[in-house]
Design a protein around this nucleic acid. Structure first.
Lengths: 121, 121
DNA sequence: TATCTGTATTATTCGTCATAGTACAGTTGA
DNA sequence: TCAACTGTACTATGACGAATAATACAGATA
C-alpha cells in the first residue's frame, strides 16, 4: 500500500481509498486480473470499518476499474482506455483552469512559467 | 445576479453563493464600497433561507472580500491584492494539474494544445 | 416611527459518512 | 469434507454538516 488515510482530509475515507487504488491501477502498480487486498484485510490494515472498504470497492467496480467475484475477490480490470479517459479528463480540467487563469489576467509568460517551472527539464 | 443556485451541485448552497459573489467582485461587477444585496432580499430572490445567505456573507467577510455594517448593509472591500491572491492560487493549481498530467503521460504537445486550443489567439 | 439593515440564537429536519454486528452464499486448500 | 477465506447484504446507531424555521435585538434611515 503506497498511500494512507488522511483523517484531516475533508474528503470521506471511502473516496480516498477509491482514488488511491485508482492511482495504483493507472500507474500499473496492480496489473489486470491481479487481486486487490480483500475487504476485511484492507480494513484491518487501515484500521477502518470493512463496510467503508466495501463501499469503496463498489465504487471502483461501478467506475469500471475492477470486477468482483463473490467468494474469490476483487480484481483489476483490463484497463485499456482507462488511462486515455483519465488523460482526457485532465486535459479538460487543464483548459478550464487556463481559461480561469486568463480571466484573472494571468499572462502567457506566467502560464508558461508554471509549465516549465514544474519539471525543470 | 449573473449566477444561479445549482441544486444538483454537490457543493453546499452557501459555498456557491460565496464563489458566485467572489467572481462578481473580482470581475468588477460590484465595485469597492458598493453594497451587496441585503441578506433578506437575496434570500427572497434565490428562494432560500436567510440564514444560508448570512453564512455566505460571514464567509465573504472572513475571506476579506467584504465588510459589514450592522443596520446599513454589506459592502465590497477595497480589493487591492485580492486578485493577486487569486492569481497565485490558480497558478499553484496549474502546476499541480500539469504535474498530474505528466504522470498520466500527457505529452508537451498535448499540453500546449490545451493552452492554445482555449483562446485561439 | 415604521421599515429597512446585520446579527445572534435555538430547534428541527435531512442526508452522508462511518461504525458495529450479523448473516448468507460461493471458493479454496488442507 | 470442512474450516477459513472471499464478496455481499442488511439493519441499527452515532456524529456531523447543511439547510430551514422562527424569533429576537440593535443600529440606520427616510
Amino acid at each position: 500500500m503506497v498511500w494512507t488515510i488522511d483523517f484531516r482530509d475533508k474528503r470521506p475515507i471511502y473516496e480516498q481509498i477509491v482514488s488511491g487504488i485508482e492511482d495504483e491501477i493507472i500507474n500499473g502498480l496492480i496489473s489486470p486480473d491481479e487481486p486487490l487486498p480483500s475487504v476485511r484485510s484492507l480494513a484491518t490494515d487501515l484500521s477502518i470499518n470493512p463496510n467503508t472498504i466495501q463501499k469503496a470497492y463498489r465504487q471502483l467496480e461501478a467506475d469500471g476499474y475492477t470486477y468482483s467475484v463473490p467468494g474469490r475477490g476483487s480484481f483489476v480490470k483490463n484497463t485499456e482506455g482507462v488511462r486515455e479517459m483519465k488523460k482526457k479528463e485532465v486535459l479538460r480540467d487543464l483548459t478550464d483552469l487556463i481559461r480561469r487563469a486568463r480571466e484573472l489576467g494571468v499572462t502567457e509568460d506566467e502560464i508558461k512559467e508554471a509549465i516549465k517551472g514544474d519539471n525543470g527539464k
